[in-house]
């Protein structure tokens, strides 16, 4: 067609990104407890947003500065927010899935919380 091959590559990257966003949302619906939902949701949505903006760099080459800046912001903020969220959910003792096999954080967390609050 009239579009160049680079633009079509970019469009397919955006499509793959949107599929990842969809899969993340599907995981949010299907997973059994909070921690699994955090894991699927934020991982897949980070990759999906990354691929979307990266595809837009191919389609609109003159916008690359702001798009790269946005990608850096996403890669910096999204894992931090999921970490803080998971820690808060552990802290208020949200019930885990009943088939959970092992809780490695549990023993360390007790000691850690006690020690650090004494230090403050």
């Amino acid at each position: 067609m009239e579009n160049s091959i680079v633009e079509i590559i970019g469009a397919f990257l955006v499509l793959i990104g949107s599929v990842f966003l969809f899969l993340g949302a599907l995981g949010l619906v299907r997973m059994p407890d909070v921690f699994n939902r955090i894991q699927t949701g934020t991982k897949a949505s980070t990759l999906g947003t990354f691929l979307t903006f990266f595809g837009l760099v191919f389609i609109m080459p003159e916008w690359w500065g702001k798009l790269i800046l946005l990608i850096i912001f996403i890669l910096m903020t999204n894992p931090v927010s999921s970490h803080v969220l998971a820690r808060a959910a552990y802290c208020i003792k949200v019930p885990m899935f009943k088939k959970t096999v092992i809780d490695l954080y549990g023993k360390d967390a007790e000691k850690l919380f006690k020690k650090e609050t004494k230090n403050e």
Binding site: L28, G41, T42, I74, L85
Partner: peptide, 19 residues
């Protein structure tokens, strides 16, 4: 906490929609 996770994913999805 479930609802907060949903809010997070919702805003990130609408971010790429803004793009």
């Amino acid at each position: 906490a479930d609802r907060l996770v949903a809010f997070d994913v919702m805003t990130v999805s609408s971010l790429s929609l803004i793009g």
